[in-house]
Design a protein around this nucleic acid. Structure first.
Lengths: 197, 197
DNA sequence: GTCTATACTGAGATAGAC
DNA sequence: GTCTATCTCAGTATAGAC
């Protein structure tokens, strides 16, 4: 069919279901049904539910790295790269309105479960944080790069949470526009400092 | 001892545990242990877990209304009232770093569970939204009051989510300061419009 | 109002046949 | 690699004694 191994299919189904239903609320029955295998067969591929979670986090990590690399390749200007990040809110609008941010909601859930994989999930946040910080450094904001990165990250989390609660597309669009203006103002202030790579 | 009925004790324990551990992850055993009653006795007070959730949401709703009224009473100026809201992030810093925002994380969880109480939980957000909007109207921002309210609400959600993920007090303080400056700039622009109540 | 005992269910996990 | 059957356990919920 699609050439994907059963293991890969399981991870992708789990990825989707953990996002839509939460980790704890998703049962082996749910996943095996989605992949069309028996529950028993499951344990040939994964020894426990936590192992699937690890695999899902790893998959998300790799996909995020790929995404960030793509943005870097396609945008010469660091400001445009940051805009690519902000624009996920528009690109993934429907999913975010339905289920929130995949990173934020997973970290939040694992935190409440006091789950050992919480630290790994938080690394997804770190990935964005580091990358955004790097772009702000390239924009000349060397001293405040990390602060600015966290600010943009917090913005995206706040918008995702409320978009989910209120199911409000117009709100998302408006906030993304606001953030765009804020990014403009940041650049204008320091236009003479730009060093691109 | 403290004059509280068993029912009240149950609701308060559930309120705390739902916040710390999540709704689904909190069992009757957890709550009954916290209140020091038997699991069986539980069902004299509540017919199901969902009934406890309803009671918890109702409690949070009433407490939020009380809080908003207090802020209105203690601050004549709408701007100071909004600052009171923003300052919850500092006041409840430790809890937020440990468990996130009680409203945001509950709404997010109930959304994933596809739980019927999600709409009621979202009303907690509505309460803040309406109240903040009212303050912005008093500040003279009649046309954009709701947009500004959502902006402040999104800010608080974003900061709470990242504060929880990164356990970062300094980040919280910095973002609250930034928001304070933003609120100042909003007021300066329209100082001549102020009408207080 | 509170307790113990117990029924029922669903979920994670294992064993072993094919 | 995949299946069925089964175990174990936690969690919700009920019945009935006190």
């Amino acid at each position: 069919m699609n050439g994907k191994t059963t293991r890969e299919q399981i991870i992708e189904a789990a990825d989707r279901l953990f996002y839509q239903q939460g980790f704890e609320h998703t049962s082996f029955a749910d996943i095996s049904q989605a992949v069309n295998i028996s529950r028993g067969n499951f344990y040939y591929h994964f020894k426990s539910k936590d192992e699937i979670l690890d695999a899902v986090i790893k998959l998300r990590f790799l996909r995020t790295q790929t995404l960030l690399n793509t943005w870097e390749k396609h945008n010469q200007h660091p400001l445009e790269r940051i805009r690519s990040f902000v624009n996920i809110l528009i690109m993934n609008q429907n999913k975010i309105i339905s289920y929130g941010c995949p990173v934020g909601t997973l970290c939040s859930e694992l935190n409440k479960l006091n789950h050992s994989a919480e630290a790994d999930a938080n690394k997804l946040f770190d990935l964005f944080r580091q990358w955004l910080g790097q772009q702000f450094i390239l924009l000349g904001h060397v001293d405040t790069a990390d602060e600015l990165a966290l600010h943009v990250l917090a913005f995206s989390q706040g918008v995702a949470t409320l978009a989910n609660a209120f199911s409000d597309e117009i709100f998302v669009q408006r906030e993304v526009n606001n953030m765009g203006k804020w990014l403009d103002s940041l650049t204008i202030e320091t236009q003479h400092n730009h060093i691109f790579v």
